[in-house]
Design a binder for these strands. Structure first.
Lengths: 215, 215
DNA sequence: GCTTGTTTTGAGATATATCTCATTTTTGAG
DNA sequence: CTCAAAAATGAGATATATCTCAAAACAAGC
């Protein structure tokens, strides 16, 4: 029962001290187990078994499950926001940035189905983590408002609505078909006050200009 | 530690046989405990203690927690949809129906904060229950589309997006201020393809025409 | 108030998780 | 290679939940 696809934290820690490598193995296993059984239902021993260690080892690193979840979610947030921001510097059109970021996020979820669900679970259970992820989103929203494309107030409910739309997509279609991605992007833009026509057109353009290759 | 506010199922079963009354006491206690600790975290004994019975009594009625949740959520769904539909017969304008139903749902959550969270938890954990609740919503959506006010396809993702917006409101502001209610109604209408201006105007009208008294 | 069927009770058997720590194993610097 | 420090181990002590069932309490018809 070793990890199959991702090796995110293990990869980041090869060459480093043993302590770092073990911690990373715990983090990677936590992603797999949290994603498959859900956070509440997973037992410490599920994670250590998956990581092929003794259960006592866990307690050399964390006090409890929550501490581990924080760590995992924070690490995933860094990785995911990093990937999304990649090559977005050049884009200075608010709605395009929002649509592209949303689409990229969901496409990451397609490649690495476990990442997004675990990160979101972390964001909802350990709300302090939200600020880190959400700062980018807020900047893009402000840009879109200043440019006159969005018609909305930025408040905490709006942010949660957007996160909820993303979670709904993940829950309903973990495979993350292009349809689901497109419908979710359009939903976000509508929520922000764009008309259906403009939203559809923009999403289509974002798909062909920025996402045609990166499958 | 007896129930304070609601007595939904107890009230429905006064006069009936003992068996019914005990079952109702379990259901009412389940609402309180699920709402305060969350479904996963509640233990059977939490519910029986709250209901002031021996823990063994639970097993005369249910096999496990999930069975109880189904029962509770189904009962709540009947009560809540009944209240929402009350006096909506006369309204034949799709968007008004959607806005009013959303606002009423959230205002029920204000009076009975436990009901909606438990019902939603049930809908997400026992998806079979969704169809019962969602049929009304679908009818209103179809009406709005036929009348040319909505611009969207009705599919399961859309339904989940709407439910998610409602859950976001509940999570963020359980007190359910008028602001939260209004913002959520507008978000639903935007999602369905109405322009921000129309959505705002419609929600304002629904508030003054249909909701001014029922506080 | 007696009797029979129904419901409740709660102690304890069973199951499952957490957490500790004396011991063993591994690591890596010299 | 050697050895002290670091890390891992896993059996078992502690804690917590589930579920059962013989006995007690109760309800209701006669």
């Amino acid at each position: 029962m070793t990890a199959t696809t991702h090796q995110l934290f293990r990869d980041q820690s090869t060459g480093k001290k043993k302590r770092e490598r073990t911690r990373s193995a715990l983090l990677d296993s936590a992603i797999s187990v949290f994603a498959s059984k859900g956070f509440e239902a997973t037992r410490i021993v599920d994670i250590t078994t998956h990581a092929e260690m003794a259960n006592g080892t866990f307690y050399n690193y964390y006090q409890d499950k929550d501490e581990l979840l924080s760590d995992v979610a924070a690490g995933l947030a860094v990785e995911i926001t990093g990937r999304i921001n990649d090559e977005m510097d050049s884009i200075r059109h608010g709605p395009t940035r929002v649509a592209l970021a949303t689409a990229r996020l969901l496409k990451i979820a397609r490649r690495e189905p476990e990442w997004l669900s675990v990160m979101l679970e972390g964001l909802f259970i350990v709300p302090e983590l939200q600020s880190a992820v959400v700062q980018y989103l807020k900047q893009d929203l402000e840009m879109g408002i200043e440019q006159g494309h969005f018609s909305t107030e930025i408040n905490v409910l709006l942010i949660n609505q957007i996160l909820s739309l993303i979670r709904a997509a993940l829950l309903l279609d973990p495979e993350m078909s292009d349809d689901t991605v497109a419908q979710t992007c359009e939903a976000v833009l509508r929520l922000l006050g764009m008309t259906p026509k403009r939203a559809t057109r923009l999403v289509a353009r974002v798909f062909e200009r920025h996402l045609s290759t990166d499958e």
